[in-house]
């Protein structure tokens, strides 16, 4: 087991190194001079040079890559070109929006998916199951930004139950914070819940065919009881895998929804930073997200190996 962990750890570090090189190289060729962007139409050449110098844009690519990498190892992500504040601080601020949003959406997704899947699996062949499965098909097919637009129109502009967007800030109280995250979380959760429902239902139905369920049924448990008491636990492995994947997706994949609701989250930070050519911010946030995904995968791998020793030898 230790050998396996070490092996995976080395490969994790290698992946991170490759990822950092890819990100840095990709952004090296982004056209557009950050200094020219910041100084605008009437900037003079010497003014531009002064600013480039201050931003540290004059070193060679290798030097800049090196300092970026070594900085990150110390938790120093550099200074934003446009905002002139430490990138780490900015990311920290944004995480207070993105992380709760991702968790909120994930929670909603589970809250919808678990009962729906259990219900559908226990009423196999009924109209009810057909209804649930039809809804999940719709949930997967609906573009979430369109769904978000419709929700803003109905719940924010017309009914005025929720703010149309923006983030109240946690210092305004938990309630106000959650209120501003509700519509975005619903928009994000809908497709995720649909996928989760489908995966979970299939997993439940698979285990229902297994011998131990038959035994349980033979002992007089109803189909629903057998599902809840025995099948659920066994169906959790694929479900947890999907939840893990969805979490890292939600962390990074909320860009469009963050834009619809103008939430100051990580996604919008990157989006703005790209158009402002604040490359150091783009590099660092993308790196952080990649790190998060790789870490989640690593944990999932370890968890599997722990559960099922046969997996240790191979992938």
């Amino acid at each position: 087991m230790l050998r396996y962990v070490l092996q995976r750890l080395v490969s994790l570090c290698l992946s991170l190194l490759v990822a950092s090189a890819v990100i840095f190289l990709a952004l090296e060729i982004v056209p557009g001079d950050p200094a020219a962007y910041m100084l605008g139409l009437n900037a003079q050449e010497d003014t531009l040079a002064a600013l480039r110098d201050e931003l540290g844009l004059n070193g060679t690519a290798l030097q800049r890559y090196g300092s970026w990498l070594s900085g990150m190892l110390h938790g120093d992500f550099g200074i934003s070109y446009t905002y002139r504040t430490p990138v780490a601080e900015m990311i920290g601020d944004r995480l207070w929006v993105s992380l709760p949003l991702a968790l909120f959406a994930l929670g909603l997704s589970c809250l919808i998916a678990f009962p729906a899947a259990l219900w559908a699996a226990s009423r196999r062949g009924t109209l009810g199951e057909l209804g649930v499965m039809g809804m999940t098909q719709l949930g997967i097919a609906i573009p979430n930004f369109w769904f978000a637009m419709l929700m803003v129109l109905i719940f924010a502009v017309n009914l005025r139950w929720f703010p149309a967007g923006g983030f109240a800030g946690w210092e305004e109280g938990l309630f106000a914070g959650l209120k501003s995250l509700t519509l975005p979380a619903v928009a994000l959760a809908l497709p995720q819940a649909s996928i989760l429902t489908r995966v979970m239902r299939s997993a439940l139905l698979d285990t229902l065919g297994e011998d131990f369920i038959r035994t349980a049924r033979a002992k007089g448990l109803t189909r629903g009881q057998a599902l809840r008491r025995h099948a659920l636990r066994n169906a959790m492995i694929p479900v947890l895998t999907i939840i893990g994947l969805q979490f890292s997706f939600l962390l990074a994949g909320a860009i469009i929804i963050e834009n619809v609701f103008f939430l100051p989250g990580l996604g919008r930070l990157v989006f703005q930073a790209i158009s402002a050519r604040d490359l150091i911010v783009v590099e660092s946030v993308v790196m952080l997200l990649v790190f998060a995904v790789i870490l989640v995968n690593f944990t999932v791998d370890l968890a599997y190996a722990w559960v099922d020793p046969r997996l240790r030898g191979r992938r």
């Binding site: 860009i255 996604g267 989006f271 993308v286 997200l289 990649v290 995904v293 790789i294």
Partner: peptide, 12 residues
């Protein structure tokens, strides 16, 4: 490739 957030990469 899977580790990269797809939408971000598309934007980049």
């Amino acid at each position: 490739i899977f580790a990269f957030p797809s939408l971000l990469i598309a934007i980049m």
